[in-house]
Write a protein that binds this DNA or RNA. Structure first.
Lengths: 190, 190
DNA sequence: GTCTATACAAGGATAGAC
DNA sequence: GTCTATCCTTGTATAGAC
């Protein structure tokens, strides 16, 4: 594998395990048997590693949502899609839990407004589809509410889980949060 | 004012303004026209400042909830109480938004399980009261769901707001989130 | 008890040899 | 592409003046 890939892989592994702030560039370099200077040849700043990991993570999430639209609207399909996204988030836990440090990087290197708008647009299309297909009864205000609900849940369930359910296995944690969202949506079932 | 109080006040001000990770002990000392060494006489570690701020913050939040119980259960009373808590959280935004760094301190210096259990217990008493008073129709599963819902919302709305609604005035932000919770609870109105 | 000055370690970043 | 050496910032600790 190319050195760059090995660095990314090892960095993500350690970020997930100990948290971004606890992992130094020297730690990553040492685990890969290379010098810190060499690592900085490939990624001149620690932030660059995080930026690359974030970019790939976002892309993989968008792909999951797009696949949902190809299949067509259904509540169970949406929950399956969400479960896939949650699993993907879980595999990038280090990036999501390290809010404080990561947020600053996102602010500087990504157009957050755009990304957020896209995400909310995804959800709007999904909920509108579920209304039109007749699976859910949703007023315009209900849709706005559900978008707000799921935006916040989808962004922070991992952080809560990392603290409150640290001893739960992954499957159980994801079941719990998907279950909450399922219950929320079921309040609007026809 | 005692030096210790001045340090806490200035630290919180800068944490709120720039985020915990961006504020060094030297920054705080400089703003107060004192040496870094003097600051470290009063608080030997940066974490000690955060611990003291967190302790006071928690105590003030608990007081707000306890006042609610003295008045007696009512949906509007609960929302007023929540608005007060949210305002208090807003005034301690730095502590809430800096998750990554703060979480490690909480893990080490507070009994998180206990605190969380207490908070969920607060909410259970509140929702049970609203059910018994006849304002809401809630099954046992509904109550569990609402506790999960409000635990996550109450913990993370500030972080989302700091990123997504950074340009909104405080009043508007809090109205938005209180409104979401109000809408959620209204789904269970008799 | 309060404060200044200073030293040290750890981590991110960079320059330059090979 | 890889390494060594070095710098700078930040948290932390302490000796010593008042």
């Amino acid at each position: 594998m190319k050195t760059k890939e090995r660095i990314l892989q090892e960095a993500l592994r350690q970020f997930n395990e100990r948290g971004i702030s606890q992992v130094g560039v020297r730690d990553i370099a040492r685990s890969l048997d290379m010098s810190a200077g060499n690592l900085s040849y490939h990624f001149s700043r620690k932030a660059d590693i995080i930026i690359e990991l974030l970019t790939r993570f976002r892309k993989s999430n968008d792909l999951i949502y797009e696949r949902y639209f190809e299949i067509g609207p259904s509540l169970s399909g949406f929950l399956d899609c969400l479960r896939e996204v949650f699993n993907n988030q879980y595999e990038h836990a280090g990036l999501m839990v390290g809010q404080g440090e990561v947020q600053e990087i996102i602010r500087q290197h990504f157009n957050y407004k755009d990304a957020e708008h896209n995400r909310k647009d995804f959800f709007r299309r999904i909920f509108t589809g579920l209304r039109d297909s007749g699976e859910l009864t949703l007023s315009a205000a209900d849709i706005d509410f559900l978008i707000s609900f799921i935006s916040l849940f989808g962004r922070f369930w991992m952080i809560e889980a990392a603290v409150s359910f640290a001893d739960w296995p992954r499957e159980k944690i994801i079941d719990y949060y998907i279950g909450l969202i399922e219950r929320q949506l079921s309040l609007f079932k026809v």
